[in-house]
Simulated assay, not measured.
Amino acid sequence: MTTTLAQKNMEAKKKVFGMIQAFWESQCLYVATRLDIFNILSEGSQSIETLAEKTATKAEKLYVILRALGHLGVLEEQPGKIFAATEVSDLLVTNAEPSIGHFAMHIIEPAQWDAWKELETCLHTGEVPFERANGKTVYEFTRDEDWSGDVFIKAMSFLTDHAVDALLDVFDFSRFGTVMDVGGGQGGLISKIVKRFGCKGMLFDLPYVTETAPAYIQKQGVAADAVQIVTGDVFEGLPTGADAIVMKYFLSSWKDEDALTILRHCREALPKHGKVVLLQCIVPDLGEPTVCPDGIIPSLFATQIMVAVPGGAWRTQKEYERLFTASGFQLENVVHTGTNLSALEFGLVD
């Protein structure tokens, strides 16, 4: 059947309405997560009155938000204003392991929201929207604000848990005697690598970031002596002793000049046979798929990075290759996974 001009126009309007409503959806999701709604419903169905009592909110106003989440398929609304959990809401539970609920709270928290309000102005001034809105960098903010810092670390741990199992099924780390995770946070990635492949591990990050790492690594069932925790500043240098350096979603936080400094320190820290394994979501070039298998849209995440950090950006594969080539590396292997994560393996050029 031929699509009429009116039908095409209506489809275009639906797309625009969807984009307009997207921030309403995210705010409803954020509020419900902050109120522990998904944690409460994981214990069983609840009436709106009970949910309001447990969250110290007004039942009639809370209902409006939860009804919307019901229409979006996040919750199930039953007769009598009873709400029940769904497969979607189960993913958003935040009182157990790091979850996508932590990631949602990190990305949608007021400090991030305020940053997006400054995007238009900063396109003219060249400022970092997050810094203009909050008076400090995102890293300083998460260091200084206890709740935000805790949510940020758990959000990053979730991203690791979400993507790494698929990676480890297709990328072999057993070739390396010691693997160092640069910017590795609590140690989720290096714990999985060590446990899966039997190699030694090193975790490198800022001191305040790694504070919870020993307990977290032990909780993963990894022996205390299997992962060496080293703290420091990546711009001052990296420790030696690793055969491979892994960076997950890390290099994308820095502008090209800073990324080149980091890669120079990687080169200085590695032996001649050493490798850098860049674990990253790759922004597609023209003609390539624009949505990852797990639903992440790299170009939108690239915009979020630009909003949050100075000069940071998710890059295309060609852009990463140019940075590594300028730093004395060459691309040797590319492995894609079933999520948003790809592994780009670089070796040193003699």
Rank of each mutant, 00 (worst) to 15 (best):
M1K: 10
T2N: 12
T4K: 00
M10E: 13
M10A: 14
A12N: 08
G18I: 00
W24C: 11
S26F: 06
D36T: 12
I37E: 00
I37W: 00
S42K: 01
S42T: 03
I48R: 05
E49I: 08
L51S: 08
K54W: 07
A59T: 09
A59C: 05
E60I: 10
K61C: 05
K61D: 10
Y63P: 01
I65A: 12
L75E: 07
L75F: 04
P79C: 07
P79F: 06
P79I: 08
I82T: 14
A84W: 00
A84R: 01
A84P: 03
T86L: 03
T86P: 08
E87F: 09
V88Y: 02
L91R: 15
L92P: 07
V93F: 00
T94C: 11
P98V: 09
I100K: 05
G101W: 00
M105E: 14
I108V: 12
E109S: 15
P110I: 03
P110M: 02
Q112D: 06
E120M: 13
E127N: 15
E131Y: 04
K136V: 13
E140L: 02
R143F: 07
R143G: 09
E145W: 03
D146S: 13
W147P: 05
S148M: 02
G149L: 01
D150T: 15
I153E: 13
K154F: 02
M156R: 11
F158D: 08
L159V: 11
D161N: 12
H162T: 05
A166P: 09
L167I: 01
L167A: 04
F173D: 01
R175K: 14
T178V: 15
V179G: 11
D181Y: 06
V182K: 07
G183R: 01
G187F: 02
L189F: 12
I190V: 13
S191I: 01
F197D: 07
K200A: 14
L203Q: 09
L206N: 05
P207E: 02
V209D: 10
E211A: 15
T212K: 15
P214W: 01
Q218C: 10
Q218L: 13
V222R: 09
Q228V: 04
V230M: 09
E236V: 03
L238C: 10
A242T: 01
D243C: 11
V246K: 08
V246G: 11
Y249L: 12
F250M: 12
L251Y: 04
K255H: 13
D256C: 02
E257S: 13
D258P: 03
L260C: 07
L263M: 12
H265K: 08
H265Y: 13
E268H: 09
P271V: 08
V276W: 04
P284W: 01
T290Q: 14
C292T: 14
C292R: 04
P293G: 07
G295F: 03
G295W: 02
G295S: 04
G295D: 02
I296T: 12
L300A: 14
A302E: 13
T303N: 11
T303L: 15
I305S: 10
V307Y: 02
V309R: 01
Y320T: 06
R322H: 10
L323Y: 08
L323E: 06
F324C: 11
F324A: 11
T325K: 09
S327A: 15
S327W: 03
G328E: 04
F329T: 03
Q330S: 13
E332I: 07
V334I: 14
T337A: 07
G338H: 03
L348G: 11
V349S: 10
